[in-house]
Design a protein around this nucleic acid. Structure first.
Length: 915
RNA sequence: GGGCUCUUAGCUCAGCUUGGUUAGAGCGCUACCUUGACAUGGUAGAGGUCAUAGGUUCGAGUCCUAUAGAGCCCACCA
């Protein structure tokens, strides 16, 4: 489309897909090792293959894209590595659900067939979210797209497991794990949500053997008593310490329980006597290890009672069993009382089934040795968190870290590379052959691989280096790792961020860095320098937007309705560092309106370019500096200030601030003032050659603004930029980001221009307040103070030029004239008036003015100024202030007092004349 | 129990890092305007004891302490 045919409103649909495929087919997203450039690398938090795009992804990926596009334009070798996560439990869930619809389950199919189906499922749906991300305009290097279960990453996972195993950092053990009976797998501590729930506290009588005495215990899970193997009291508890060493009889079961003493007991809770159920409570398990107690497992993997309990209970569901047991205890006189009791219950973070602590064989990573260096790099600021407060949270977790349960009893995932001989020996190996070698067994003896798979995070914690080819050592890895910025949600700080820091440090030690030498310094071992924790997006009611609540608008609908740029702009505008964001679809009107404003600014300039210069394309390679007037100098000052502030805000991750800067500069400075003033020159009397310079300059400044805008709104900026001038096949996304020219930043110019703004606003105010319609022509008499005459004389082409500004910008027909301080002032009789920094403005309105309204207006203004003067006077009469405050502050107050008083007096005189 | 965050206009939020302009924006509201980019627009206006109470200071929306309310995270009580 040629420039002159721009439509009246901006239509995102006409341009978004067009430019995205242009960028992609021309490989503009692709990054390669380039020794002449500094790399800027970002790895995407890999979305789940089960996922669809949510507002959370929109925010997260927009921020990444803003950073990546900004750096790319600044001349960095910007590389954004995309990919997806296999999401073990989530994906297996999704597939099992769809199988269930056909009445099948995974056990009917068997492992191999089931995995085949999951892979098919992944082929079909696994790239949905990746396609959706493209709609948002993300500039990922798609040639580098990875998947946590692709061949390379799977090998890396194996390699890591084996190395950790050989170092003794991976071990197998019987431990209490969080067992989800729904998924029939262990979960890590982080995968358990604690939900406050109203339950009951049951008080149960345990008879002592050979005695009439009994102990009372309190429990919220009475069914677990079937697995009790001891009672426990505090050794210093006067009430109960005599019980230590005695034996109690477990009700119903009649098992003998020894009574032990341990200071784990909380004296203030319950009865002071605790039942010990080693196989079904984490703390009891620890007790049982200390006291060498029997660990009796009473549940199967579905949390039904197994046959180690009396047969009337075996086979029952745990909650059925609880009900029956409570009834039986009551009937047999063991139940003393039941109290309502609110407590936290652990639930599966995926299916919300109540977690059952369960004793089983699992694999763990020993975390302490990995955590120590990872804690240090954050404390020392080698890795920086934004906002910083997450450092404390991180510290707390890292110093109290527990071993990581990494085995999962599901099928979809990286199978644990451990092989067992029939007699129970085992080792970690890359394949069966290697395993036989390590185990020293021949082909005649069958060995089997562990059935379990690894936690999903066991592949994602390697993401910053496996995506670059590790364990293979290559140029990419040396060049792009450590990466620069990670953008992610604070909810996965432990799942993912902390573990990536650990893994990168651990495994990059043996890898060469940028200089080709082994990495030694922390700065080369970390996975990323900066971590930006995004806001949590909430709905209008303040609820977190989530798939399960279904309260997240579909971003694709939002894009359809408002455009991707509008969505990008709006979410970044709304996201202050470290605070939550309330989002609703309608808020995207903000972004849409802004896009339309920009569009029309471009349209206007191009229309005038055609009018003045004609059809030939401009080059816009440099700023035309001829015939600069005050407004030109002012907008150049504002532009350079905007560039400077934008860079500064982004460097500090104040994303919302940088977006607001763009908005204010383009809408208010450029459109509201500069374009309006440029109009006076387009339609004025200046020769065509000068007008040509003026329009070319306006276009050059707009070109700069589009470059500035591009990281946030890539589509509209590219479309307009291409229309603006001859580009010879270059794309804006690879164009130079504007650099700051300090010499244009000029406070004096801005002050002078602000005076003009104030004069114009004063006249507009008179018109508005006195209800003088724009069609009514008014005369304006401006009585300049000397200090202001120079503004018109020196900085605007001529005095007529200044009056043209006034005429044009006062939004209505005007006939401005001016006098100077030294000239005799012929104050019109019935007139409205205003004072701007001492310069008086009169609007003679005899016959049309509502004198009462004007008196009212003046009285109000005088009262306001009086209030200000009073405040300052009070301050200045405080001797403490005058003596102790810095001199310049006091001087400023004096100056202020003087100026405001003078203005007030002038208005008072005008008011007198109206009486 | 430990930690963190928030409370500013009718609504949603900036401003606090580094104390000193007449405390800002968007939406909404009121009035006027379809003027040769844009009504997804323009101009003007109304609207705020900056949660409360103390403290530091010449001076506090901004710094400190406490309180109240809202929310989040971690740990966990059998």
């Amino acid at each position: 489309m040629s420039a002159q045919e721009l439509s009246k409103t901006y239509n995102p649909k006409d341009v978004e897909d067009k430019w995205y495929s242009y960028w992609e087919t021309n490989k503009l997203f692709h990054a390669t090792v380039n020794k002449d450039k500094t790399p800027f690398t970002v790895v995407i938090p890999p979305p789940n293959i089960t996922g669809i795009l949510t507002m959370g992804h929109v925010l997260n990926n927009t921020i990444q894209d803003v950073l990546v596009r900004w750096k790319r334009m600044q001349g960095f070798e910007a590389c954004w590595i995309p990919g997806t996560d296999h999401a073990g439990i989530a994906t297996q869930n999704a597939v099992e659900k769809s199988l269930a619809k056909e009445g099948k389950n995974r056990h009917d199919l068997g492992r191999e067939k089931f995995l085949e189906i999951v892979w098919q499922w992944r082929e079909k749906y696994g790239s949905t979210i990746i396609q959706q991300l493209r709609k948002l305009g993300v500039s990922c290097d798609w040639e580098r797209e990875r998947f946590t279960m692709d061949e390379g990453l799977s090998n890396a996972v194996k390699e890591v497991f084996i190395r950790l195993f050989e170092k003794g950092l991976v071990y197998r053990g019987k431990y209490i794990v969080n067992w989800c009976p729904q998924h029939q797998t262990a979960l890590s501590d982080d995968e358990v949500d604690h939900v406050e729930t109203n339950g009951n506290l049951y008080y149960i009588k345990y008879q002592l053997a050979d005695s009439s005495e009994y102990a009372i215990i309190a429990t919220t899970r009475p069914e677990t008593m079937l697995g009790d193997t001891a009672l426990c009291v505090h050794p210093k508890d006067e009430r109960h310490k005599h019980l230590i060493g005695k034996t109690a009889i477990l009700p119903i079961v009649n098992r003998k329980l020894q009574i032990i003493g341990d200071d784990y007991i909380d004296l203030s809770f319950g009865t002071g006597v605790m039942k010990v159920t080693p196989a079904h409570d984490a703390n009891d398990f620890l007790l049982s290890q200390r006291h060498k107690l029997q660990q009796l497992n009473i549940f199967d993997e579905t949390s039904h009672l197994n046959n180690s309990v009396p047969k009337e209970y075996s086979g029952m569901d745990r909650f059925e069993c609880r009900a029956k047991l409570v009834k039986d205890l009551e009937e047999q006189g063991f139940l003393l009382k039941v109290e309502p009791y609110a407590h936290n219950i652990g639930k599966c973070y995926r299916c919300h089934t109540v977690i059952e602590p369960w004793l089983s064989d699992q694999w763990f990573v020993k975390m302490k040795p990995l955590a120590e260096p990872a804690l240090l790099v954050v404390q020392q600021g080698v890795v920086r968190f934004h906002p910083e407060r997450w450092v404390k949270v991180y510290e707390h977790w890292m110093t109290n870290i527990r071993d990581w349960c990494i085995s999962r009893q599901i099928w979809w995932g990286h199978r644990i590379p451990v092989y067992y001989t029939p007699d129970g020996n085992y080792t970690a190996a890359r394949n069966e052959e290697e395993a036989r070698k390590k185990l020293g067994v021949g082909n005649d003896i069958p060995i089997r691989q562990d059935e379990d798979v690894l936690d999903t995070w066991f592949s994602s914690w390697l993401w910053p280096f496996t995506t670059l080819g590790w364990p293979e050592e290559n140029e990419d890895l040396r060049y792009f790792n450590p990466t620069d910025t990670l953008v992610t949600g604070p909810d996965i700080i432990f799942f993912w961020v902390a573990r990536m820091i650990m893994a990168n440090i651990e495994f990059m030690k043996a890898t060469a860095g940028k200089d080709g030498k082994p990495r030694k310094h922390n700065a080369d071992l970390i996975p990323f320098r900066d971590v930006y924790f995004t806001s949590i997006i909430r709905d209008a009611q303040g609820r977190k937007m989530s798939k399960s609540l279904g309260n997240s608008p579909d971003p694709l609908d939002v894009i359809e309705q408002y455009g991707a740029d509008a969505l990008r702009f709006t979410v970044t505008y709304l996201s202050p560092l470290g605070q939550d964001v309330l989002f609703s679809t309608e808020k995207c009107e903000l972004g849409r309106n802004f896009a339309n404003k920009i569009w029309n600014a471009g349209r206007f300039l191009l229309m005038n370019k055609k009018e003045i210069i004609g059809d030939q394309n401009l080059i816009l390679d440099k700023l035309p500096t001829e015939h600069l007037d005050l407004a030109d100098r002012w907008i150049l000052s504002r532009l350079n200030q905007a560039i400077k502030s934008f860079n500064n805000s982004l460097a500090h991750f104040y994303i919302d601030e940088s977006t607001k800067l763009l908005y204010d500069f383009i809408w208010h400075d450029f459109c509201d003032w500069y374009i309006e003033i440029v109009k006076t020159r387009f339609y004025g009397e200046e020769p065509r050659e000068i007008k040509a310079i003026v329009v070319a300059r306006a276009l050059w400044i707009f070109d700069q603004a589009l470059r500035l805008l591009h990281p946030v709104m890539p589509f509209i900026s590219e479309e307009l930029w291409q229309n603006l001038a001859e580009r010879n096949g270059q794309s804006l996304m690879r164009a130079d980001f504007p650099s700051v020219n300090e010499s244009y930043i000029n406070q004096t110019i801005e002050t002078k221009f602000n005076f003009i703004i104030k004069v114009i606003e004063a006249v507009r105010n008179i018109r508005g307040e006195l209800n003088v319609t724009p069609s009514k022509e008014i005369q304006i008499v401006i009585h300049f103070q000397n200090k202001h005459t120079e503004i018109t004389a020196e900085n605007i082409a001529n005095a007529q030029g200044f009056l043209n500004y006034i005429d044009r910008l006062c939004r209505g027909k005007t006939k401005p004239i001016w006098t100077t301080e030294s000239a005799e002032l012929k104050k019109p009789k019935a007139s409205a008036s205003a004072v701007v920094e001492g310069t008086e403005i009169f609007v003679p309105l005899e016959g049309i003015i509502d004198l009462d309204a004007e008196r009212n207006r003046l009285e109000k203004e005088i009262a306001r100024l009086q209030g200000l003067v009073d405040g300052i006077t009070r301050k200045l009469s405080n001797t403490n202030f005058v003596e102790r405050a810095p001199k310049d502050v006091v001087e400023k107050e004096r100056e202020k007092q003087k100026n405001i008083s003078e203005n007030k007096e002038k208005l008072k005189r005008s008011l007198e004349q109206l009486r």
